[in-house]
Design a protein around this nucleic acid. Structure first.
Length: 369
DNA sequence: CATTCGTGGCG
DNA sequence: TCGCCAAGAAT
Protein backbone atom coordinates (compact mmCIF):
# COMPACT_ATOMS: atom_id res chain seq x y z
CA UNK A 1 0.00 0.00 0.00
CA UNK A 2 2.98 2.28 -0.35
CA UNK A 3 1.44 3.57 -3.52
CA UNK A 4 -1.82 4.57 -1.88
CA UNK A 5 0.22 6.48 0.69
CA UNK A 6 2.08 8.32 -2.03
CA UNK A 7 -1.16 9.19 -3.83
CA UNK A 8 -2.79 10.42 -0.63
CA UNK A 9 0.10 12.62 0.42
CA UNK A 10 0.45 13.98 -3.10
CA UNK A 11 -3.23 14.92 -3.15
CA UNK A 12 -3.07 16.65 0.23
CA UNK A 13 -0.02 18.71 -0.71
CA UNK A 14 -1.57 19.67 -4.02
CA UNK A 15 -4.89 20.70 -2.51
CA UNK A 16 -3.46 23.15 0.00
CA UNK A 17 -1.70 24.93 -2.87
CA UNK A 18 -4.34 24.77 -5.61
CA UNK A 19 -7.77 24.57 -4.00
CA UNK A 20 -10.36 26.99 -5.32
CA UNK A 21 -11.66 29.38 -2.73
CA UNK A 22 -15.28 28.23 -2.76
CA UNK A 23 -17.69 29.97 -0.37
CA UNK A 24 -18.88 26.84 1.47
CA UNK A 25 -15.28 25.92 2.20
CA UNK A 26 -15.42 28.70 4.79
CA UNK A 27 -18.52 27.22 6.43
CA UNK A 28 -17.83 26.09 9.93
CA UNK A 29 -21.22 24.44 10.41
CA UNK A 30 -22.34 21.23 8.77
CA UNK A 31 -25.56 22.81 7.54
CA UNK A 32 -23.84 25.07 5.03
CA UNK A 33 -21.76 22.17 3.74
CA UNK A 34 -24.82 19.97 3.50
CA UNK A 35 -26.73 22.58 1.49
CA UNK A 36 -23.79 22.95 -0.86
CA UNK A 37 -23.55 19.20 -1.37
CA UNK A 38 -27.20 18.88 -2.29
CA UNK A 39 -27.01 21.83 -4.68
CA UNK A 40 -23.90 20.35 -6.24
CA UNK A 41 -25.60 17.05 -7.11
CA UNK A 42 -25.28 16.88 -10.91
CA UNK A 43 -24.67 20.62 -10.95
CA UNK A 44 -21.49 22.54 -11.56
CA UNK A 45 -19.74 24.71 -8.99
CA UNK A 46 -20.05 27.97 -10.89
CA UNK A 47 -23.80 27.51 -11.20
CA UNK A 48 -24.24 26.76 -7.51
CA UNK A 49 -22.30 29.67 -5.99
CA UNK A 50 -24.96 32.43 -6.28
CA UNK A 51 -27.74 30.02 -5.26
CA UNK A 52 -25.82 28.97 -2.19
CA UNK A 53 -25.27 32.58 -1.10
CA UNK A 54 -28.95 33.44 -1.47
CA UNK A 55 -30.07 30.28 0.33
CA UNK A 56 -27.73 30.78 3.29
CA UNK A 57 -28.72 34.43 3.57
CA UNK A 58 -32.46 33.68 3.64
CA UNK A 59 -32.34 30.37 5.52
CA UNK A 60 -29.23 30.61 7.70
CA UNK A 61 -30.15 27.78 10.09
CA UNK A 62 -31.77 24.36 9.95
CA UNK A 63 -34.67 25.76 11.93
CA UNK A 64 -35.25 28.44 9.30
CA UNK A 65 -35.29 25.76 6.61
CA UNK A 66 -37.62 23.48 8.55
CA UNK A 67 -40.17 26.30 8.90
CA UNK A 68 -39.88 27.91 5.48
CA UNK A 69 -42.92 28.00 3.17
CA UNK A 70 -42.60 25.79 0.11
CA UNK A 71 -42.89 28.72 -2.30
CA UNK A 72 -39.79 30.25 -0.76
CA UNK A 73 -37.84 27.02 -1.23
CA UNK A 74 -38.88 26.74 -4.85
CA UNK A 75 -38.08 30.39 -5.52
CA UNK A 76 -34.63 29.91 -4.01
CA UNK A 77 -34.18 26.82 -6.20
CA UNK A 78 -35.59 28.40 -9.36
CA UNK A 79 -33.37 27.57 -12.31
CA UNK A 80 -31.23 24.96 -10.54
CA UNK A 81 -33.27 21.98 -11.71
CA UNK A 82 -34.06 18.72 -9.95
CA UNK A 83 -36.54 20.57 -7.77
CA UNK A 84 -37.28 17.62 -5.50
CA UNK A 85 -33.86 18.30 -4.01
CA UNK A 86 -35.26 21.44 -2.35
CA UNK A 87 -38.26 19.63 -0.91
CA UNK A 88 -36.12 16.74 0.33
CA UNK A 89 -33.76 19.19 1.96
CA UNK A 90 -36.63 20.58 3.98
CA UNK A 91 -37.97 17.13 4.89
CA UNK A 92 -34.49 16.23 6.09
CA UNK A 93 -34.21 19.47 8.07
CA UNK A 94 -37.38 18.48 9.91
CA UNK A 95 -35.95 15.03 10.65
CA UNK A 96 -32.79 16.65 12.00
CA UNK A 97 -34.86 18.99 14.15
CA UNK A 98 -37.15 16.26 15.45
CA UNK A 99 -34.75 13.38 16.01
CA UNK A 100 -31.21 14.81 16.18
CA UNK A 101 -31.75 17.85 18.35
CA UNK A 102 -31.19 20.19 15.41
CA UNK A 103 -27.65 18.95 14.75
CA UNK A 104 -26.69 17.43 11.41
CA UNK A 105 -25.72 13.82 12.16
CA UNK A 106 -22.13 12.71 11.61
CA UNK A 107 -22.44 8.97 11.00
CA UNK A 108 -23.10 7.40 7.62
CA UNK A 109 -26.00 5.36 8.96
CA UNK A 110 -27.80 8.41 10.37
CA UNK A 111 -27.07 10.53 7.33
CA UNK A 112 -28.49 7.90 4.97
CA UNK A 113 -31.80 8.17 6.79
CA UNK A 114 -32.21 11.74 5.60
CA UNK A 115 -34.28 12.34 2.45
CA UNK A 116 -32.07 13.38 -0.43
CA UNK A 117 -28.91 12.01 1.18
CA UNK A 118 -27.45 9.00 -0.61
CA UNK A 119 -24.06 7.29 -0.42
CA UNK A 120 -22.11 10.16 -1.93
CA UNK A 121 -23.69 12.96 0.10
CA UNK A 122 -23.47 10.96 3.33
CA UNK A 123 -19.75 10.43 2.75
CA UNK A 124 -19.33 14.09 1.88
CA UNK A 125 -21.01 15.40 5.02
CA UNK A 126 -19.25 12.91 7.29
CA UNK A 127 -15.81 13.63 5.89
CA UNK A 128 -15.96 17.29 4.84
CA UNK A 129 -17.98 18.62 7.79
CA UNK A 130 -16.81 16.25 10.55
CA UNK A 131 -13.50 14.95 9.22
CA UNK A 132 -14.66 11.37 9.63
CA UNK A 133 -12.54 8.72 7.83
CA UNK A 134 -15.28 7.99 5.28
CA UNK A 135 -14.75 7.56 1.54
CA UNK A 136 -16.83 9.14 -1.20
CA UNK A 137 -17.16 8.60 -4.93
CA UNK A 138 -18.79 11.14 -7.20
CA UNK A 139 -18.37 11.69 -10.93
CA UNK A 140 -15.04 13.44 -10.42
CA UNK A 141 -13.61 10.79 -8.14
CA UNK A 142 -14.80 8.04 -10.48
CA UNK A 143 -12.90 9.67 -13.32
CA UNK A 144 -9.72 10.11 -11.28
CA UNK A 145 -9.77 6.55 -9.93
CA UNK A 146 -10.66 4.79 -13.18
CA UNK A 147 -7.67 6.52 -14.75
CA UNK A 148 -5.37 5.95 -11.81
CA UNK A 149 -5.99 2.20 -11.85
CA UNK A 150 -7.26 1.72 -15.42
CA UNK A 151 -10.63 0.44 -14.29
CA UNK A 152 -12.31 -0.76 -17.45
CA UNK A 153 -15.94 -1.07 -16.36
CA UNK A 154 -18.65 1.58 -16.54
CA UNK A 155 -18.61 3.49 -13.23
CA UNK A 156 -22.40 3.43 -13.22
CA UNK A 157 -22.49 -0.36 -13.03
CA UNK A 158 -22.74 -1.83 -9.54
CA UNK A 159 -19.61 -3.96 -9.84
CA UNK A 160 -17.43 -1.07 -10.98
CA UNK A 161 -19.03 1.18 -8.40
CA UNK A 162 -18.02 -1.28 -5.66
CA UNK A 163 -14.45 -1.34 -6.98
CA UNK A 164 -14.25 2.45 -6.93
CA UNK A 165 -15.60 2.73 -3.38
CA UNK A 166 -13.06 0.13 -2.35
CA UNK A 167 -10.19 2.14 -3.83
CA UNK A 168 -11.53 5.30 -2.20
CA UNK A 169 -11.56 3.43 1.11
CA UNK A 170 -7.91 2.41 0.62
CA UNK A 171 -6.98 6.04 0.11
CA UNK A 172 -8.82 7.06 3.28
CA UNK A 173 -6.98 4.37 5.23
CA UNK A 174 -3.64 5.47 3.82
CA UNK A 175 -4.51 9.04 4.76
CA UNK A 176 -5.15 7.95 8.32
CA UNK A 177 -1.61 6.61 8.57
CA UNK A 178 0.22 9.66 7.28
CA UNK A 179 2.67 11.05 9.81
CA UNK A 180 2.06 14.66 8.97
CA UNK A 181 -0.49 16.50 6.89
CA UNK A 182 -0.49 20.05 5.57
CA UNK A 183 -3.16 22.51 6.69
CA UNK A 184 -5.37 24.91 4.79
CA UNK A 185 -8.10 27.35 5.82
CA UNK A 186 -10.30 25.77 3.13
CA UNK A 187 -10.72 22.38 4.81
CA UNK A 188 -10.51 21.10 8.35
CA UNK A 189 -8.72 17.81 8.83
CA UNK A 190 -6.96 15.24 6.69
CA UNK A 191 -10.00 13.24 5.55
CA UNK A 192 -11.81 16.40 4.56
CA UNK A 193 -8.77 17.50 2.59
CA UNK A 194 -8.29 14.15 0.89
CA UNK A 195 -11.84 13.85 -0.36
CA UNK A 196 -12.01 17.44 -1.51
CA UNK A 197 -8.64 17.00 -3.22
CA UNK A 198 -9.92 14.00 -5.16
CA UNK A 199 -12.94 15.94 -6.34
CA UNK A 200 -10.99 19.11 -6.99
CA UNK A 201 -8.48 17.22 -9.09
CA UNK A 202 -11.28 15.72 -11.16
CA UNK A 203 -12.96 19.08 -11.58
CA UNK A 204 -9.91 21.13 -12.54
CA UNK A 205 -7.08 18.86 -13.78
CA UNK A 206 -8.27 15.31 -14.44
CA UNK A 207 -11.13 16.60 -16.55
CA UNK A 208 -13.34 14.64 -18.87
CA UNK A 209 -12.06 16.36 -21.99
CA UNK A 210 -8.56 17.72 -22.45
CA UNK A 211 -7.15 16.73 -19.06
CA UNK A 212 -4.09 18.68 -17.88
CA UNK A 213 -1.91 15.72 -17.00
CA UNK A 214 1.18 17.92 -16.95
CA UNK A 215 -0.25 19.61 -13.86
CA UNK A 216 -1.35 16.45 -12.10
CA UNK A 217 0.26 15.75 -8.73
CA UNK A 218 -0.27 11.99 -8.99
CA UNK A 219 0.57 11.32 -12.62
CA UNK A 220 3.59 9.23 -11.60
CA UNK A 221 1.12 6.78 -10.04
CA UNK A 222 -1.40 6.97 -12.87
CA UNK A 223 -1.60 3.80 -14.92
CA UNK A 224 -3.65 5.36 -17.70
CA UNK A 225 -1.14 8.18 -18.05
CA UNK A 226 1.72 5.68 -18.27
CA UNK A 227 -0.17 3.84 -21.00
CA UNK A 228 -1.10 6.98 -22.89
CA UNK A 229 -4.75 5.99 -22.49
CA UNK A 230 -6.10 8.64 -20.17
CA UNK A 231 -8.98 9.68 -22.38
CA UNK A 232 -10.17 6.10 -22.68
CA UNK A 233 -11.36 6.32 -19.06
CA UNK A 234 -13.94 6.28 -17.65
CA UNK A 235 -15.65 3.93 -20.10
CA UNK A 236 -19.15 5.37 -19.86
CA UNK A 237 -21.91 3.73 -21.85
CA UNK A 238 -23.53 6.06 -24.39
CA UNK A 239 -26.71 7.73 -23.27
CA UNK A 240 -30.14 7.11 -24.65
CA UNK A 241 -30.79 9.47 -27.50
CA UNK A 242 -33.17 12.29 -26.61
CA UNK A 243 -36.73 12.21 -27.89
CA UNK A 244 -37.84 15.43 -29.49
CA UNK A 245 -41.03 17.10 -28.34
CA UNK A 246 -42.75 20.30 -29.39
CA UNK A 247 -45.07 22.40 -27.31
CA UNK A 248 -46.95 25.59 -27.97
CA UNK A 249 -46.82 28.04 -25.09
CA UNK A 250 -49.33 30.85 -24.94
CA UNK A 251 -48.66 34.12 -23.17
CA UNK A 252 -52.11 35.56 -22.69
CA UNK A 253 -52.68 39.16 -21.63
CA UNK A 254 -55.82 40.62 -20.18
CA UNK A 255 -55.91 44.15 -18.77
CA UNK A 256 -52.22 44.24 -17.88
CA UNK A 257 -52.02 40.74 -16.43
CA UNK A 258 -50.72 37.40 -17.65
CA UNK A 259 -52.29 33.97 -17.26
CA UNK A 260 -50.22 31.30 -15.49
CA UNK A 261 -50.91 27.89 -14.03
CA UNK A 262 -49.26 26.04 -11.18
CA UNK A 263 -48.18 22.46 -11.81
CA UNK A 264 -50.12 20.07 -9.64
CA UNK A 265 -49.11 17.33 -7.25
CA UNK A 266 -47.90 14.26 -9.10
CA UNK A 267 -46.62 16.32 -12.03
CA UNK A 268 -42.99 16.79 -12.84
CA UNK A 269 -41.92 20.12 -11.35
CA UNK A 270 -45.04 20.35 -9.23
CA UNK A 271 -45.42 23.61 -7.43
CA UNK A 272 -43.70 25.53 -10.21
CA UNK A 273 -45.65 28.03 -12.31
CA UNK A 274 -45.84 28.17 -16.08
CA UNK A 275 -47.65 29.65 -19.03
CA UNK A 276 -50.21 27.26 -20.48
CA UNK A 277 -48.73 24.85 -22.95
CA UNK A 278 -50.09 22.41 -25.49
CA UNK A 279 -48.22 19.47 -26.93
CA UNK A 280 -47.87 19.78 -30.69
CA UNK A 281 -47.40 17.18 -33.33
CA UNK A 282 -44.03 17.49 -35.01
CA UNK A 283 -45.94 18.28 -38.20
CA UNK A 284 -47.29 20.58 -39.45
CA UNK A 285 -44.47 23.06 -39.03
CA UNK A 286 -46.87 25.91 -38.36
CA UNK A 287 -48.97 25.24 -35.29
CA UNK A 288 -50.95 28.50 -35.30
CA UNK A 289 -54.20 26.87 -36.34
CA UNK A 290 -53.98 24.19 -33.70
CA UNK A 291 -53.29 26.76 -30.99
CA UNK A 292 -56.07 29.06 -32.16
CA UNK A 293 -58.57 26.23 -32.09
CA UNK A 294 -57.39 25.19 -28.64
CA UNK A 295 -57.97 28.68 -27.26
CA UNK A 296 -61.02 29.37 -29.43
CA UNK A 297 -59.58 32.62 -30.80
CA UNK A 298 -58.68 33.74 -34.30
CA UNK A 299 -55.28 32.73 -35.71
CA UNK A 300 -54.51 36.36 -36.52
CA UNK A 301 -54.55 37.32 -32.85
CA UNK A 302 -51.55 35.05 -32.13
CA UNK A 303 -48.20 36.82 -32.26
CA UNK A 304 -44.99 34.76 -32.20
CA UNK A 305 -42.28 35.34 -29.60
CA UNK A 306 -38.78 33.82 -29.72
CA UNK A 307 -38.86 30.05 -29.42
CA UNK A 308 -37.26 28.53 -26.36
CA UNK A 309 -35.50 25.20 -26.10
CA UNK A 310 -34.95 23.12 -23.04
CA UNK A 311 -34.37 19.55 -22.02
CA UNK A 312 -35.68 17.26 -19.37
CA UNK A 313 -33.26 14.37 -19.28
CA UNK A 314 -34.22 12.31 -22.30
CA UNK A 315 -36.53 14.87 -23.88
CA UNK A 316 -35.32 17.64 -26.15
CA UNK A 317 -38.12 20.15 -26.11
CA UNK A 318 -38.83 23.09 -28.37
CA UNK A 319 -41.35 25.63 -27.14
CA UNK A 320 -43.13 27.63 -29.81
CA UNK A 321 -44.31 30.75 -28.02
CA UNK A 322 -47.31 32.91 -28.93
CA UNK A 323 -48.65 36.03 -27.34
CA UNK A 324 -52.27 37.11 -27.55
CA UNK A 325 -54.58 39.59 -25.90
CA UNK A 326 -57.96 38.27 -24.83
CA UNK A 327 -60.95 39.61 -22.95
CA UNK A 328 -61.92 36.41 -21.21
CA UNK A 329 -60.23 33.23 -19.99
CA UNK A 330 -60.30 30.52 -22.67
CA UNK A 331 -62.27 27.55 -21.40
CA UNK A 332 -59.60 25.02 -22.41
CA UNK A 333 -57.08 26.47 -19.96
CA UNK A 334 -58.81 25.34 -16.79
CA UNK A 335 -57.40 26.47 -13.46
CA UNK A 336 -54.92 29.31 -13.38
CA UNK A 337 -54.49 32.90 -12.34
CA UNK A 338 -54.20 36.30 -13.98
CA UNK A 339 -51.08 37.86 -12.48
CA UNK A 340 -49.15 41.11 -12.67
CA UNK A 341 -45.54 41.33 -13.67
CA UNK A 342 -44.54 41.89 -10.08
CA UNK A 343 -46.46 38.85 -8.91
CA UNK A 344 -44.85 36.69 -11.58
CA UNK A 345 -41.38 37.81 -10.53
CA UNK A 346 -42.05 36.45 -7.04
CA UNK A 347 -43.09 33.00 -8.26
CA UNK A 348 -40.90 30.03 -9.12
CA UNK A 349 -40.89 29.21 -12.84
CA UNK A 350 -38.85 26.65 -14.71
CA UNK A 351 -35.94 28.17 -16.60
CA UNK A 352 -37.73 27.82 -19.92
CA UNK A 353 -40.82 29.65 -18.71
CA UNK A 354 -38.75 32.29 -16.93
CA UNK A 355 -37.11 33.02 -20.28
CA UNK A 356 -40.52 33.25 -21.88
CA UNK A 357 -41.66 35.68 -19.19
CA UNK A 358 -38.63 37.87 -19.80
CA UNK A 359 -39.20 37.81 -23.55
CA UNK A 360 -42.85 38.71 -23.17
CA UNK A 361 -42.36 41.45 -20.62
CA UNK A 362 -39.24 42.93 -22.20
CA UNK A 363 -39.31 41.78 -25.82
CA UNK A 364 -35.86 41.43 -27.29
CA UNK A 365 -35.08 42.75 -30.73
CA UNK A 366 -34.77 39.74 -32.93
CA UNK A 367 -32.00 40.13 -35.45
CA UNK A 368 -32.85 38.38 -38.65
CA UNK A 369 -30.00 36.49 -40.24
C1' DC B 1 -32.07 -2.71 -11.52
C1' DA B 2 -33.54 0.69 -15.08
C1' DT B 3 -35.60 4.99 -15.33
C1' DT B 4 -36.54 9.57 -14.01
C1' DC B 5 -35.47 14.08 -12.61
C1' DG B 6 -33.13 20.22 -15.08
C1' DT B 7 -29.99 23.08 -16.55
C1' DG B 8 -26.00 25.47 -18.61
C1' DG B 9 -21.58 25.22 -20.72
C1' DC B 10 -18.38 23.57 -23.85
C1' DG B 11 -15.88 21.45 -27.92
C1' DT C 1 -26.48 22.37 -34.06
C1' DC C 2 -25.48 18.53 -31.28
C1' DG C 3 -23.80 15.36 -27.88
C1' DC C 4 -21.72 15.09 -23.60
C1' DC C 5 -21.55 15.81 -18.90
C1' DA C 6 -21.51 18.10 -13.85
C1' DA C 7 -19.87 17.39 -5.82
C1' DG C 8 -26.56 11.71 -7.33
C1' DA C 9 -30.90 10.11 -5.25
C1' DA C 10 -35.41 8.11 -5.42
C1' DT C 11 -38.48 4.93 -7.22
Amino acid sequence: MAEATEVASGLLAWFVLHARDLPWRHSRDAYGIWVSEVMLQQTQVQTVIPYWHRWMRQLPTIGDLANAPEEQLLKLWEGLGYYSRARNLQKAARVVTDTHGGNVPSTIADLLELPGVGPYTAGAIASLAYNQPEPLVDGNVARVLTRLRMIEGDPREPETKATLWSIATQLIKATGKLHSVPSTPLARGRFSILNQALMELGATVCTSRAPSCDQCPIRKSCQAFASGAVERFPALAPRVKATRLRYAVVVLRRSGKWFLRQRGAGDVNHGLWEFPQLELRLRPANPVRQVAEWLDITPKSLHPLPRVRHAITRYQITLEVFQASVDKTPVALGDGQWLTTREIEALALTSAHRKIALNAIEPVNIQTD
